[in-house]
Design a protein around this nucleic acid. Structure first.
Lengths: 213, 213
DNA sequence: GTGTGTGAACGACTTCACAGCC
DNA sequence: GGCTGTGAAGTCGTTCACACAC
């Protein structure tokens, strides 16, 4: 497949790869030919050793005494992260958050294509919504039969989330980005990332409360 | 202070505390008097031992043979997380994401009060925006002098982020929730949480690409 | 018997440090 | 001299397992 790795890659490593890619693209755009692990580390707020270890999981890209070839490495990282595919995404929940997401530039820039928007509210179904038309959430399973969907983004209230997830998984979607502040229960082969703003805020609240005075 | 702890609490622990609180509130609402570490673990997708260890950092709340008193524990967790304060929040960036955030229920429910909205775009400055009026981002430092601001939420493009952060920190704000997909550089005593949707999506892309076939 | 609290064992990620190559 | 690649050492968070309390 894409790489010869046998060990499992840590989640934290993947997040950093994504970060490296972001900054390498910037460097590439500004014509930088090479970048050292030290330079990358500074940009990404990590350590040179960490950068080297992360990259070495996937091969030896660097030249000793020189650093990493910027363009070559961006290409390789995109490959590793699977950004060659044009992933097809549906957004479930046509509210404010869903709307903000659909517009989010980062989506398209990285090859994530919104191919459908769903809601359960009859007032919203049928409405135009960006390029798409809001469809009944009940039709999602049927739609997935005729059109490939790789990722579902959940932007709905917590109370509905688990129910929708069950149907999404049943329909064959294997990756979920969850914005509902609830713990989703899914089979182990399904990839789930949860973005929980309440949790982040409470993390800040804790930090402010228990800071070194 | 709030607790007698001397060791540093791991970030992952704080996130779980937040999760426990969420489900304990639910249980409390439905009249449950006690909950075992086992029950909580199932709800929060963790292990009973983890729950007990997390809670034991802050004292012995449970009764052996019985479990934890639900209501008492919610009160205690709110205290630990610092949710007694009415934290005052400003939102920087009056775009779609900022707008979705300002409306987000979780905010108010947990005592986070939006006391200001800022943008640098002259077309947006002065517009009504929910309860507030959008103000010039240049005025934020001055405003912070007359009104306490605990947390700044950044919902602006990456290119502007570091610049705004520098001014925010200068102005005395000590906690930042960052939605720009960039690494913020701040002094170590400032608390920063970054929510990076591109990163999460790329994590899913990686998982789909490198899944066990 | 049931379920907590916790030291000890374990495992996973990070940092160190240095050999090797440019 | 500069910088990568990587085993070894270290650190930190999680899991185990059992004494103890109800």
């Amino acid at each position: 497949m894409t790489h010869p790795t046998t060990k499992r890659i840590a989640d934290s490593t993947v997040r950093r790869l994504s970060m490296y890619l972001r900054y390498l693209e910037e460097l590439d755009g500004s014509g930088q030919a090479t970048a050292s692990s030290d330079a990358l580390a500074h940009l990404c707020l990590t350590t040179p050793a960490q950068v080297r270890k992360d990259l070495s999981f996937f091969g030896s890209f660097g030249k000793r005494g020189l650093g990493y070839p910027v363009h070559e490495l961006t290409v390789r990282l995109r490959e590793i992260l699977g950004l060659g595919h044009a992933w097809q995404v549906v957004i479930v929940g046509a509210g404010k958050i869903g709307s903000a997401l659909a517009e989010y530039r980062g989506f398209r820039q990285r090859g994530f294509q919104v191919v459908g928007v769903y809601d359960k509210n009859p007032d919203k179904i049928g409405r135009a919504w960006g390029d798409a038309t809001v469809r009944d959430i009940a039709q999602l399973p049927a739609d997935v039969q005729s059109q490939r969907v790789d990722i579902a983004v959940l932007a709905i209230p917590s109370d509905d989330a688990q129910d929708v997830v069950d149907r999404i998984v049943e329909a064959g979607i294997r990756a979920i980005l969850n914005f509902a502040p609830t713990q989703l229960h899914v089979p182990s082969q399904i990839a789930v990332k949860t973005v929980n703003m309440a949790m982040e805020l409470e993390g800040l609240s804790f930090a402010l409360t228990n800071r070194a005075d």
